[in-house]
């Protein structure tokens, strides 16, 4: 299985032949996205802007005003935080820009908190007309990029991408998988409780947690929510109607992530009556360490998750 980052660039190249309307800007992080593959094929459509994120984002704004679609790449922690005002300013002009929030989430955790991005959803979701996505795997990466480049999507888009290979025990998307805007994908079928999550790291932890829970005869339904701030109401109503316990798992800070956005959407639409809700996310600065160490430290590894779920059910 190829990584989401590789899939992103391969997809970009696939679309570039027919769609001559997009160009790519990079703040010297093309190595991590393998963007040279694109820039070698389309040098005139690639702008190396150096480590100058604010300048790169505003430049993208000017390019977008001329009718092109800029795809702007940097690490999520730098792009969405340092350049947040520039992103906001571009958005006020109503033109469409696609931001690549590379290295989204806590993993890999070796670089530490300067690089791990756990604030970017909250930083972008309060900008009007903004859609935030995180593809679960390579196939979904293709679908999401296709959606973002499509004419029907008029909003600014951010695509969160994990760095690194998918974890070994990653579950597959269902064979009939189809990307549907605002809807999630069922990874496992459950009957007692349901968990909403996204991204390769957390979906995998949820999956492993579901296997532990199964031994205790608890069936956890896992939903991959690749649209992080836009939700389909009727689909959600149908999805949760048989569940009392709703869980939410973010690869983001505890506040301001997909969980908060989804819970507020459900509450607004009176879909949380008589439900028991619990969310999981990072409650402090992310720790530095290995994959397992860090998730365990933050009690977001599959063992901690299944224990906390059991505790919640007993209450």
């Amino acid at each position: 299985m190829i990584s989401v980052t590789n899939s992103f660039t391969n997809s970009l190249i696939k679309f570039a032949k027919k769609n001559k309307n997009f160009v790519v800007l990079d703040a010297d992080l093309s190595d991590d996205l393998d963007l040279q593959k694109f820039s070698n094929l389309y040098p005139s459509r690639f702008i190396q802007n150096g480590i100058a994120e604010q300048d790169m984002i505003s430049m993208a704004g000017g390019i977008a005003r001329m009718g092109l679609i800029p795809i702007v790449n940097s690490f999520a922690s730098f792009l969405t935080a340092r350049g947040n005002e520039q992103i906001y300013n571009n958005a006020t002009e109503g033109s469409k820009i696609i931001y690549v929030s590379l290295y989204a989430g806590a993993i890999p955790a070796g670089a530490g908190k300067s690089h791990q991005s756990l604030r970017d959803i909250s930083l972008l979701s309060n900008i009007p007309n903004f859609r935030i996505f995180q593809p679960y795997n390579s196939g979904e990466t293709y679908e999401i990029l296709k959606h973002c480049l499509g004419k029907n999507e008029k909003n600014n888009c951010a695509i969160r991408l994990s760095i690194g290979p998918a974890p070994d025990s990653s579950p597959k998307l269902p064979s009939n998988y189809k990307f549907e805007y605002g809807k999630g994908t069922q990874i496992t079928k459950g009957k007692d409780l349901i968990i909403f999550s996204y991204g390769q790291t957390m979906i995998c932890e949820a999956f492993k947690a579901s296997q532990l829970l199964k031994k205790k005869n608890i069936n956890l339904e896992i939903i991959n929510m690749s649209c992080l701030n836009y939700f389909n109401k009727s689909w959600l109503r149908e999805k949760i109607k048989n569940f009392k316990y709703l869980f939410f798992l973010d690869d983001h800070n505890f506040s301001g992530g997909m969980s908060d956005l989804l819970i507020s959407f459900l509450t607004e639409n009176h879909l949380t009556d008589k439900k028991v809700l619990k969310k999981f996310g990072f409650t402090n600065f992310p720790a530095c360490g290995t994959y397992e160490e860090v998730l365990k430290f933050h009690k977001l590894d599959h063992v901690s998750l299944s224990n906390q779920i059991i505790k919640k059910l007993k209450r």
Partner: peptide, 11 residues
């Protein structure tokens, strides 16, 4: 200046 150079690049 960043925006202006974006306009010019696109031109």
């Amino acid at each position: 200046i960043s925006k202006a150079k974006g306009f010019l690049w696109a031109k």
